[in-house]
Design a protein around this nucleic acid. Structure first.
Lengths: 146, 146
DNA sequence: TTCAGTGCAAAGACTTTGCACTCAG
DNA sequence: CTGAGTGCAAAGTCTTTGCACTGAA
């Protein structure tokens, strides 16, 4: 994993700095889909001089390289996911967490690409599918408290 | 249409002000999925004293009432759609326009809700599906210029 | 008449820009 | 060495908040 990010950065003509590696590893080791600020906070002990700015720039670079996926869940900030392949997310309206759904996102992408090509002639390269509702834990709480 | 928005606002216990009606009509009469700023600009001649603030507040109210859908396409601002039912959008990476896709969004919602209920026990109420790619016009230009 | 809604100004949140310093290659 | 990358500060963009005034019901 550590080697992979170093190699992929270099292959793309970018330098493999400690900051970049640390930011990538932070993202790769969590399922939280953290925002830039959270990545920054989680790395603060290990990299006291790391700036929030660098986190933003790095995440932007990663997104452009296709190493990372940016998520807009309508919370006013962007979240990031180390899994860049198209997949489905669930945003819980109660606790605010974002979960990965193991539905085959590639299949949806293919189906939508065919449909859109046939109806309108548009070209589809990627998609973002976010489900809004309540995660298991919050859904259960609702039932109990009602 | 004009009567509908007046009635729906009053039924929900809200006042049907000229600003609210104008903002709703602006949204209902366009397929552009405009942002708050654009709605504000389009109404400036008709309502010179209308404030951008009021546009934001009104769109927020409409969203809460389910009269309007908010779209996060990752451009740094929110777009609004007078069609609140779940449907698919295509964001063109070249021209930046956002198009409605007449795919049955309700069907996707139902399928996803069933899947997610079975795999994880989450509850799904709504979804946001945005396709990224190139609209017909931009896709054609690309082909020609290559 | 009465208070929900508006408009103005200011503040807030997230993100980007500018620039000198640093360190990866 | 050398310039891509970093860190700091400042600015920018979109959106929200506070408050006195206004006009819909």
């Amino acid at each position: 994993m550590y080697l992979t990010i170093t190699r992929r950065l270099r292959e793309a003509g970018f330098r493999a700095t400690p900051q970049r590696i640390a930011i990538y590893m932070t993202l790769a080791q969590t399922k939280e889909h953290p925002c830039a600020e959270l990545v920054y906070e989680q790395l603060h002990d290990e990299f006291p001089t790391l700036s929030l700015n660098t986190v933003y720039k790095t995440l932007q670079t990663f997104e452009e390289l296709g190493l990372v996926r940016r998520l807009d869940t309508g919370e006013g900030m962007c979240r990031y996911d180390a899994n860049p392949s198209p997949h489905v997310h669930l945003a819980c309206r109660a606790c605010g967490q974002v979960f990965d759904i193991d539905y085959d996102g590639g299949h949806i992408l293919e189906e939508m690409a065919h449909y859109v090509e046939a109806h309108g002639g548009h070209e589809v390269w990627d998609l973002n599918l976010i489900l809004y509702g309540y995660c298991r834990a919050c859904a259960n709480q609702k039932v109990c408290s009602n």
